[in-house]
């Protein structure tokens, strides 16, 4: 955690501590004022994405998805529903597949974020990308980065034991074009290669 963030925590915690003293002896229904009357201004966060550092000045409300798309210029991660219901925004944080739309960017300081732009090394495609291409595991392509990030994680998790298992563990990624059978075939193939 950067010195910046630590200082903010200490300030907040101190304010909270004062509040705590005030609380003692009070009835439960009276609660003290929040520590900051004014909402927080923009804060500095350094995102570590695909091995590169992105120092960003962000509103604390910003989701990781919006920080990637609107500020870091990484538009490969898609916004499908912005409410955690479609999986198009799937990225890896510290190696686990998660939803960037439900993640505050400000909570990502110090974490290793991988997006579709960083899944493959250089010009070589990741085996899951290659398999999606050959099995036509997509049509419009909009859910595809999320599907591929999810599929790559699924293989690492070991949830590739059968087609039925792949289907269940890919059910957090909606494909409205209906490429599911091809997606399953692609992941099955990539898992055999890996």
């Amino acid at each position: 955690m950067s010195p910046n963030v630590t200082r903010r925590v200490v300030l907040a915690a101190t304010a909270g501590g004062l509040v705590l003293h005030e609380r003692i002896g009070r009835a439960d229904d009276t609660t003290p004022a929040p520590p900051s009357a004014l909402p927080q201004k923009a804060i500095d966060v350094e995102l570590r994405v695909n091995g590169s550092r992105f120092p960003l000045n962000i509103d604390p409300r910003t989701s990781l998805l919006d920080a990637l798309r609107e500020q870091a210029g990484l538009t490969g991660t898609k916004k499908g529903c912005d409410r955690g219901a479609c999986g198009a925004c799937t990225v890896h944080i510290d190696g686990r597949r998660v939803l960037s739309c439900l993640t505050l960017a400000a909570r990502c300081q110090g974490k290793a974020i991988t997006t579709i732009e960083g899944l493959n090394a250089g010009e070589d495609l990741h085996p899951v990308q290659t398999a999606f291409l050959h099995h036509d595991g997509f049509q419009c392509g909009y859910c595809t980065p999320g599907q591929i990030m999810s599929g790559a994680a699924l293989i690492k998790e070991g949830h590739d034991g059968s087609d039925a298992e792949i289907r269940e563990w890919m059910s957090g990624n909606i494909c409205r074009c209906g490429a599911y059978p091809n997606i399953v075939a692609a992941i099955r193939d990539a898992s055999r290669e890996g």
């Binding site: 538009t75 991660t77 579709i116 732009e117 990308q129 997509f138 595809t144």
Partner: peptide, 10 residues
């Protein structure tokens, strides 16, 4: 256009 789509560059 598949390569653009699987790499997030479309």
């Amino acid at each position: 256009d598949g390569r653009l789509k699987v790499t997030g560059r479309a």
